[in-house]
Nucleic acid binder design. Structure first.
Length: 109
DNA sequence: ACCATGACGTTTC
DNA sequence: CGAAACGCCATGG
């Protein structure tokens, strides 16, 4: 893709996502709000789409939309990879939706 | 510089 | 209560 010389919006997103603890998830909105633009949730998703370009591996499977729906699962290597990873971390998922979502929801510092 | 796109969110019908 | 439209803003062409 490209080589961001300075810290871009995307890198800010990567930093937040990288801080998500094991077995927890967060939403695009929370990340966007942490950055300073509560309305930029779309940019967060866009950044995640390019997470593979980042120097580190981003646990994008721990990022879901505000209702705990695995909206981005289709963007993974395989459509069922995201759910598989989350279940592997102890998160129960039913019909692409995280159960007990608010219970495992993690908010950025 | 302008137009099109998007892994979302909120408001409105 | 469910679906659709609008808004939002960074990145790419």
């Amino acid at each position: 893709m490209k080589e961001p010389k300075n810290l871009t919006f995307s890198e800010k997103v990567y930093e937040i996502v990288a801080q998500i603890p094991y077995g927890r998830v967060t939403t695009y909105g929370h990340i966007a709000r942490k950055i300073g633009s509560p309305q930029s949730a779309r940019m967060v998703g866009w950044a995640m789409n390019h997470s593979h370009s980042y120097k580190k591996e981003i646990p994008a499977h721990r990022v879901v939309n505000r209702v705990g729906l695995l909206t981005g699962k289709a963007h993974f290597a395989t459509p069922d990879l995201m759910q598989k990873l989350l279940e592997k971390e102890g998160i129960e998922i039913k019909d692409n939706q995280i159960q007990d979502f608010k219970n495992i929801l993690w908010s950025p510092e």
